[in-house]
Write a protein that binds this DNA or RNA. Structure first.
Lengths: 107, 107
DNA sequence: CAGAATCCCCGCGGATACTG
DNA sequence: CAGTATCCGCGGGGATTCTG
């Protein structure tokens, strides 16, 4: 799973240990199921470390490994690129859609 | 579509104009359909330029825009990261799978 | 050669309900 | 609080067929 949620989790967990519910609240639209599954995959790949505290109520913290922090840096460059070219792409799309309007073929 | 083929197309088209069939042969496992669809999306986003030559047989060339070349550079950093940490991740997975073997629960 | 159209499968992921 | 289990819909994408 490269997973549609992985990147957002990496970003949300970038600054220090964070609890399950914090992630759930911090990431707009994620379901509890997908948060769990994606965290498991990230943990399996050695990108997040999971720490369970034997308390009541339970407490589980997730934090990025050094490798994941490196990944985050390169992802940041991607984000920067996307931000820089946001308008360019929006314009390209608008132009493309204008030239290829599917609904005007007979109208 | 962020599409599972987009990156490979960007890489395959990185060095000068390339024809449809060249892309098809150069990208392992891609179907003609997905090549077409993904190229359309990249074109729509202003990442590839499509040039049609009115010849018989038809000839169509695709080349990256400057913006796409910038993107390719940042993608290269991702690839580099993946390559650097390939073994680390493989080991992490093996270790995880060993610790959490699902099939040994009763065996 | 470079597509467009159609059919169809499957697995990602949402909704919901249940536990230690 | 931090999950797990089950059901199920949707759409991404493969295989195939037809054209300019």
């Amino acid at each position: 799973m490269s997973g549609k949620w992985s990147v957002q989790i990496l970003v949300a967990a970038a600054h220090g240990p964070v609890r399950f519910t914090e992630l759930e609240r911090g990431i707009e639209g994620i379901s509890r199921r997908m948060l769990t599954l994606t965290l498991r995959n990230l943990e399996r790949d050695g990108l997040v470390k999971r720490t369970v505290y034997a308390t009541v109520p339970p407490k589980v913290e997730y934090e990025l490994t050094p490798v994941a922090h490196e990944l985050n840096e390169t992802l940041q460059r991607l984000t920067d690129w996307a931000e820089r070219n946001r308008v360019y792409i929006a314009n390209a799309r608008a132009a493309y859609d204008t030239e290829h309007r599917p609904e005007l073929v007979d109208g």
